[in-house]
Design a protein around this nucleic acid. Structure first.
Length: 428
RNA sequence: UCCUCGGUAGCUCAAUGGUAGAGCAUCCGGCUGUUAACCGGAGGGUUGUAGGUUCGAGUCCUACCCGAGGAGCCA
């Protein structure tokens, strides 16, 4: 069996493709079957005079998305989409599909989301998912090559990783458990065991956010490293993002074309990324007319404005402590700000990475847990890490869907995950 | 939770308070190089739900349901 992705290697040969009918056009004694097999789309040409009558009629009776096995001579042809086509010789109908709901015309978001299980078969979704997979592969490869060890962290957790945000709750025998919103705290433990680690998995947020950049279930990759400071973290994140974009440019050109994403915007993603302080970001926002007080966190609008000022991703570092989580290391030179940094993607996309240096001082950590009102008993193990060989360490989380949305220039994160979970969307 | 917009054929959308329509999909027919093919014909409707105003409501009013975009929220 041959895949359409590699059909160019079989010109002049008889080949068999197992797949589905994507679309069909006919012209009297000719029928053009657009066949997809998951790796690509290719047309098979059925000519009445070259085929037994039964085969030609069977081709004519096919419905969109019927599963079929086609075989015939592969040849190059300028007129064929993709440049190659098959002269149909043999056709096997595996299943004749019912009338297919997603017709080759426009559809609304709600209808497509209700048919997400079928929508994934369309060219656009095919291209997006192939890039998503490439992004995930590139992320893991980059960290693996640097000696980072993948450590999978739990999804069922006893309490909030950080008491402030809303968690999904689920029964857990006679108790309650919560779906993880980050693997970071656990990775601070594994980083002390293995030096450099990362986790990669789904995370859950029960916030009732209703915007183009939020999902209730999304995937995040979170590196964490011992003896890494804020500057080291930014250097790591920068190298990671550059490598991911380069790998997509190298291996997923065809997909970028299908999505009409201009590669020039991605080719500009070169080091070094600008690094500006929160203070400077506030000044820039005010120069653009924003009314923002020092100490306020940035909303989506502020991120959009900032990210449009640069032609590549930009780090904003040293946020006011009150904007950030309890475990963030205060800047020794300015205790009112913390050694944290977010990476904002350009073209208005905003935050794709958040992270920073963690508190390693035992007394400070215990004080911060108390101030934040977290249950000390449940954070005992986390505080313990500051008792047994504490070292300065840093880490960050990169959101997969937001990253793919930016790389592909999409409007909404919901198309970058096979089955998006949104506030009003749990089916299919 | 709030603001804005929307809900009419399987889908995408039209319809001045006065006979509910088109394109696509489906079915039938035509076409030997189609590119979301094209051409001809046919079938297809509880206008989101419940009330109200009116001689008459898809259209106006009220409530509710659902969706989209945004705000808030958001390592």
């Amino acid at each position: 069996m041959v895949t359409i992705e590699r059909i160019g290697e079989h010109v002049g040969e008889e080949a068999e493709i197992r797949g589905w009918l994507y679309n069909m056009r006919s012209s009297g004694a000719l029928r053009f079957l657009l066949v997809r097999d998951g790796t690509g789309v290719m047309q098979a040409v059925a000519v009445r005079s070259d085929l037994p009558a039964g085969v030609f009629d069977a081709a004519g009776a096919l419905t969109q998305e019927s599963s079929i096995i086609v075989a015939g001579l592969v040849r190059e042809d300028r007129r064929a989409p993709g440049g190659y086509e098959m002269a149909l010789r043999r056709l096997e109908v595996v299943q004749l599909a019912d009338p297919y709901p997603i017709t080759p015309k426009e559809h609304g978001v709600e209808f497509l989301m209700d048919h997400r299980h079928l929508w994934l078969r369309s060219q656009r979704q095919w291209a997006i998912m192939r890039v998503r997979a490439e992004v995930e592969r590139a992320l893991c490869r980059y960290l693996d090559d640097l000696g980072y060890l993948r450590m999978d962290t739990p999804i069922l957790t006893p309490s909030a990783c950080e008491g402030t945000t809303t968690l999904f709750e689920t029964p857990y025998f006679e108790r309650r458990a919560y779906l993880a919103q980050s693997g970071q705290l656990y990775n601070e433990a594994t980083a002390a065991a293995f030096g450099r680690v990362y986790c990669f998995g789904p995370t859950f947020r029960a916030e009732k956010s209703k915007t183009r950049r939020h999902l209730t279930e999304f995937w995040m990759l979170e590196p964490e490293a011992a003896y890494l400071d804020l500057d080291g973290y930014m250097e790591l994140a920068e190298g990671l993002v550059v490598a991911v974009v380069r790998q997509v440019l190298e291996r997923r050109r065809r997909e970028l074309e299908i999505l009409q994403r201009d590669p020039a915007a991605l080719e500009r993603v070169q080091p070094p990324f600008p690094r500006i302080t929160y203070d400077e970001a506030v000044e820039r926002l005010r120069a653009r007319g924003a009314t923002i007080a020092w100490g306020d966190d940035f909303g989506g609008d502020e991120e959009t404005v900032l990210s449009r000022e640069f032609d590549r991703p930009v780090f904003v570092h040293r946020y006011p402590a009150r904007c950030k989580a309890f475990y963030m290391q205060p800047d020794p030179a300015r205790p009112e700000v913390v050694l944290g940094a977010d990476l904002l993607a350009p073209e208005g996309y905003g935050e794709i990475i958040g992270g920073g240096q963690r508190i390693h001082d035992r007394e400070l950590m215990e004080r911060r847990i108390e101030e934040t009102g977290l249950p000390a008993a449940e954070y005992q193990w986390y505080a313990d890490l500051r008792r047994y060989g504490a070292v300065p360490h840093s880490g960050f989380g990169i959101g997969i869907e937001r990253t793919v949305t930016w790389i592909l220039g999409l409007e909404h994160v919901r198309e970058t995950i096979p089955f998006p979970r949104l506030i009003n969307r749990l089916y299919p």
